[in-house]
Amino acid sequence: MVTAAKVLVSAAVLGESFAQAIPAYGQERQGAPVYACARVSHSPIEINCFVYEPDCAVVFDINIKELGVDFEHGLKSGGIIIANTQKSLEELGVTTPVSKYGAVDAWTITDKILGRVPPNAAMLGALARTTEWVKIEHICQALMESMPGRKGVLNADAARAAYEQTRVITF
């Protein structure tokens, strides 16, 4: 998750945009819910604090809802939700009015191409497709730069596959 936020910044930088990813650093437990935030902009970013009212929420695992995590918390009305699921917004129980919804089965894509690893690359592909804030080419390049060799290429493949398979609904 934190890695995904860093790759997002790298992709934005490749596109000569401005971006920042502030990790919430602490003592982490494997499998516990993780939160990371990032900002992407065409102009320099001055603000340097965590994101409390995101324009977009990316849900890597919809099961966090059962753990009591409200992924809509703070999401701006008219914002964007991207989720690792094939369920509809209604099925997810989303109540915030959104402008766009991107749905992708990132587990299946990741499993097929990368094996049992977090769906970072696939969710970045879905993010590029749904928001259009960063180019998929830059996501792929950033993934390959952060992971040299075959691992990077496969991650880029996963991102591209997710980019193509993401179902985007505009409201």
Partner: peptide
Amino acid sequence: GFFTSHTVQG
């Protein structure tokens, strides 16, 4: 610490 040291940016 963290706000600059660990924040990834251009």
